[in-house]
Nucleic acid binder design. Structure first.
Lengths: 140, 140
DNA sequence: ATAGCTGCAAATGCTTTGCAAGGCC
DNA sequence: GGCCTTGCAAAGCATTTGCAGCTAT
């Protein structure tokens, strides 16, 4: 067993936080590791909070919310609003869309290339498009 | 001035409620009139509640929520979730998408024909598509 | 040293609920 | 009359905030 001080994975995550301009505190690092160490994920604040507890990471729910929002602000995450009182954070910040399974409440990515969004109307009044969300809601 | 008991518009709205299988009570009728009497609209529960007050329609906020949900359930309305704590009800239940103006918090319809959604991936596991939401978020 | 974080608990704000009273069919 | 609706106030929930104490740099 080696000391769990700084594994390669930690360094990557640490770099990521620093680059984003976020201080790599103990809890942010721990949360970032949970989020980014295993491919793309869709998490809720509550879900991440529980996961943290399961991994003996001691953080408060408020801190989880803060971290999630900080990450989102720095484009490390993307927030997806399914309905009032169910919003997910997606570690995939690239261009893509989603399937939402109404029964299970789960999300699944859809690569941007899979959907042809043609003839997008001009945003009125010279507005600029911040983002395009596409959610395909399916009933199993 | 004619009596305001039953104008043609009222009858239409009344029919609409009955057809949907909703009892046309005083408050549902009043709310439905506000909603359907003037073209397509995007309202929030709070907004409709205030509008009702302005029109001397005396309903409680809970009733507004109930009515909105009842209407949505009967497909008289469609609910659009912008983010946690901001959801709109759209009187246009046809196929269409939306612009969302982040500064003003307003919605604008985009006719379905204006966007080509091609090659929609099969919903996994034989699931059926309940609805496709497209929200183009713009910054003025 | 110090600007930025965190934890806790209380506060918010939107939405839902419970139940008695009222109204539509 | 019977059952669905309403109103009110209270409850619920997810999320945010205030502030004292910590901590990364």
């Amino acid at each position: 067993m080696r000391a769990k001080k700084t594994s390669p994975a930690d360094l990557t995550v640490l770099e990521r936080l620093r680059t984003a301009g976020l201080r790599p505190t103990r809890q942010r690092l721990a949360l970032a590791k949970l989020l980014f160490a295993q491919g793309h994920r869709h998490v809720t604040a509550e879900g991440l909070f529980n996961e943290a507890k399961d991994n003996r990471v001691d953080v408060s729910l408020a801190t989880v919310y803060n971290a999630l929002h900080d990450f989102t602000e720095k484009s490390l995450l993307r927030e997806i609003s399914i309905d009032s009182s169910r919003s997910y954070f997606d570690t995939n910040v690239g261009d893509h869309y989603h399937f939402y399974f109404e029964q299970t409440g789960k999300l699944q990515d859809i690569p941007a290339e899979r959907i042809a969004l043609a003839n997008l109307p001009e945003a009125p009044g010279g507005a600029t498009v911040a983002r395009v969300d596409v959610i395909i809601r399916v009933r199993d």
